[in-house]
Design a protein around this nucleic acid. Structure first.
Lengths: 384, 384
DNA sequence: TGCACTTTGGCAACAGCGTTGCTTAAGTGG
DNA sequence: CCACTTAAGCAACGCTGTTGCCAAAGTGCA
């Protein structure tokens, strides 16, 4: 009946301020939506939602009634009885809302339309020259977005997430100097795209978008480092279930961690950067050495931040995934084992799932996230 | 009059779950207490609290009335009039509650009694042999705690924060293998101390306690790395206003970050650890080289996490503070400037204030934190 | 088939939260 | 002295999740 969306405001993200009843209402709705999404197609019963959220069953009934009325959730079958009335299963309605994900890379762009469950409904990949004129790039991107929107006519799209390489300001949506593409320096990409698309836009680094998407996976870890080895080397950090962007949203500069004092000079001007060492090894046809170096850097990251796991991605890794996963795991294990006082600590290394449109899908997840409260850990470092 | 404490539950810490009215009440009380604490002796008016929290003035009036009834806040003078009725200033009552801070170091222990404002009321320092029998150590610690409690008879003490070196589990309160002191491996220090003191106890690493205390400083940054160079090298990370402890509460292993691939072997078994390089330089009487290495590690940390600043502490640093601050700053600046694409980015390096009982005071702050919600960035308006 | 029992989930009444509308308190300035 | 401004409290209100109770919908045994 009421066509108002549930308030997107997440209490966890603004817990610094006071909270009133509308905020509380939106928070609890987001919590239940998060649990519903985590349950996937299997669904959850009201009592399980109550147990998972800490709310009383009656409160869950009321809130889910609102969600059903808004079309976001629906009843879907029943559980087997355990001696009494069987539990009714509730499920997210994936088609109730959609989000756009847009990945602008140096040489190609990927647009995706994702439903509420985070599943890609339509994907369009196209070549792109990020070095071209801004208007040209924006027009191409907008056309691509229109194409994926056309795949689901009438879909209620709540916004677009945009992922780009290079440093940028997530809060203001302004690009900094993308390496090699000075014309984008200071360009207000978020505002420009929001106007052109007529949608709310969230801008983030490609590595952050990918990491965010990985964090939403049903079996995702609560904290991990996503290492992306492509034409460069970057990282996305997920700490406590949320992407860590840092004070100026510049966190994740993993490639220019120095792991060899006074080592070979890197393109960035420093010496002994892990990116320079890794890429030199790759260029020399020694992926084993690249993996070893990457593993040492991963060990530094794991020890500093105590994350649950390490995920690998990027074109260079995808060229020979098993070699990199095994090589990094061996190097990482060796470092952690040597530093043996922590005992039998082992941090799994895995290939980041999702393939070629993982970044675009993660960007769509950035938008969807405003509807959900993460069922995992709490302290969001994001600040409005 | 009512002796009930305000609910210590912090919405931000359990935002994973649903929220109900008592939780909301406690949260808003904690938010206002946080603002009151941030205001210090100067105090805040009700309208300023409303602006800072996003609550309505009337809500602030009701909540502060409860805080005053509980004895936690009081009226303290008036502001100058701006044409109408002058604002009444509210102030925290520092003596309403107290917390114990206990720093157990290898060779000495420091106990402190801190009031609600975080000011030390009593401090006792005593030699300690952390290698002695557990019961002996606990008895000595308990006696020391009793001494500082005696300094404020009748004080309502809400708990004790305990800071120790070496790896430990913050959540369970169990020590892991403290380097060189294997007898503490697996010892449930929190439970043992809680029983002996008859108080709730929070256990944390010394570096985390120090970092937490630094984060509560009125002029403290929202995110920073605290590097502690003493007999070893460790770090405390404050991200988004809160100490980052990691998945297994083992974060902050800064000393064994590898910054020299295949470098000299470290005591931990790895090669090229920053701790080994630093301490070797110190032993060789070359603090400048130690500072340079430390600056490179600090640059790695700053780029990876995008923190606001770097703070230095620990005995070795305190032996020649200016040299280290200047040396690290120069090295850090050089690294960041070389990696120049980020532009005129400068991260200040400073000596961590607080002196010799900073860790113990930070430990006391760990307990006090349960009463407050961090006021930083409190621009959020709860108005819909 | 019938009945006792268990479990689910909605209805209605309720206490408690912050909000709104209005009133009172306490100043300034012409 | 009086109009005006600003601060803060009182009372009524809408809304939240909670509690007590009851209908619905199964199982299992006689």
């Amino acid at each position: 009946m009421t066509s108002e969306n549930p308030p997107p405001s997440d209490l966890a993200e603004r817990a610094l301020g006071g909270a009133n009843l509308p905020l509380l209402r939106g928070h609890n709705a987001a919590v239940l939506l998060g649990l519903l999404r985590a349950a996937g197609e299997g669904g959850v019963s009201r009592l399980e939602l109550a147990e998972g959220s800490g709310l009383t069953p009656q409160a869950v009934s009321k809130i889910t009634a609102r969600l059903r009325e808004a079309g976001l959730a629906t009843e879907a079958g029943r559980r087997a009885s355990t001696g009494g009335k069987p539990r009714t299963v509730l499920r997210l309605v994936p088609g109730a809302r959609y989000a756009i994900g847009l990945h602008l890379d140096r040489d190609e762009s990927v647009a995706v339309l994702a439903d509420l469950a985070g599943e890609p409904i339509a994907v369009r990949r196209a070549p792109l020259d990020l070095g071209a004129d801004a208007d040209e790039v924006l027009a191409a991107a907008a056309a691509q977005v229109a194409e994926v929107r056309a795949a689901a006519p009438g879909a209620q799209v709540i916004g677009a997430g945009v992922a780009c390489p290079g440093p940028l300001d997530h809060r203001t949506g302004v690009l900094h100097r993308v390496t090699g593409l000075p014309q984008w320096d200071g360009y207000p990409l978020r505002a420009a795209l929001a106007e052109r698309l007529g949608l709310p836009v969230v801008l983030d680094k490609d590595t952050n978008a990918a990491a965010h998407g990985l964090a939403q996976q049903p079996d995702g870890a609560e904290s991990f480092g996503y290492l992306h080895l492509g034409t460069g080397l970057g990282a996305g950090l997920v700490l406590g279930g949320a992407v860590h962007r840092g004070a100026r949203t510049g966190a994740g500069e993993f490639g220019h961690q120095v792991v060899q004092l006074d080592g070979p000079r890197c393109g960035c001007g420093k010496r002994g950067c892990i990116e320079a060492l890794c890429l030199a090894a790759v260029a020399a046809g020694e992926p084993a050495e690249a993996a070893r170096v990457l593993g040492v850097g991963a060990a530094n990251l794991v020890e500093l931040l105590d994350v649950d796991r390490v995920l690998l991605g990027g074109r260079t890794v995808l060229a020979d995934p098993q070699a990199y996963v095994r090589g990094v795991a061996a190097s990482l294990d060796g470092q952690l084992r040597a530093h043996g006082s922590a005992g039998a600590r082992t941090v799994p290394v895995a290939l980041a799932p999702g393939g070629a449109h993982a970044v675009a899908l993660g960007a769509a997840h950035l938008v969807l996230a405003s509807l959900f409260a993460s069922p995992r850990g709490a302290l969001g470092s994001a600040r409005a």
